[in-house]
Amino acid sequence: MMIGANAFSVRKLLGLLLYLLFVLLPIYWLVMMSFKTNEEILGQLTLWPAQFTFDNYVTIFTDPSWYMGYVNSMIYVVMNTLITLVVALPAAYAFSRYKFVGDKHLFFWLLSNRMAPPAVFLLPFFQLYSSVGLFDTHLAVALAHCLFSIPLAVWILEGFMSGVPKEIDETAYIDGYSFGHFFVKVFVPMIRSGIGVTAFFSFMFSWVELLLARTLTSVDAKPISAIMTRTVGAAGIDWGLLAAAGVLTIIPGILVIWFVRNHVAKGFALGRV
């Protein structure tokens, strides 16, 4: 019995390691490539850089037209996350606590925005933001990304909030808390893991998106993902530089997931288990 169980857990471990290998190998390849010279990348297939070089990273960190891309991306991603949280928190509270005229329709309409292919909104967005003078600003990208992040945020937060017993609200009101006071001082701290997870998702979906971010910017707010296309030049692709730029885009994600690692399990179920 015990031996059988052990053999089973060894098989499980092997299966898991095999899958993790599948996940990590392409990333490993990119990381290694970023430390190689272009001659080595095109010359031979090496598992470890023969001539270890930081040149690709030096180029990115010393050229403002490169590193400003990361700054721009960061700015609109953070703006998007903040706007999303500020408007989604009260809305999710309303959906989790009250019935009101048109609530179900509103909720489905909201989710339907998450289902809209970004390509559909490409041109209208461009025209809308140009006409109100927001074209090529971080705010334009942040607002455009809200279209996808807010529905998801309301959905996740509503799940977390429904897990908080209603008696808490009622007790707070009896104790003389005003709504605003209760919401900020009592309720928000109670669902902070939900807020962390929501922020994580808003950050993630805004960080990884390219199509809208590229269309709504030209110079001042150009995201890193759009700048990366520069590595394709007349002399072919600068593989090493492209790889280094790619590796640097992975780091913010790792930092963010590190902060929410203990809530990941619950968070990925959108607060619904």
């Binding site: 996940v23 392409p26 790792i254």
Partner: peptide, 30 residues
């Protein structure tokens, strides 16, 4: 959990780049 979530946090164009490189017969391992 973190290793598993890694692909989700990579910008989509970089995902394309990773596989563009990884799957090439001349310079990609795969």
């Amino acid at each position: 959990l973190i290793l598993l979530a890694l692909p989700l946090l990579i910008p989509w164009n970089v995902v394309g780049t990773i596989w563009q490189v990884f799957a090439r017969g001349d310079i990609g391992l795969f």
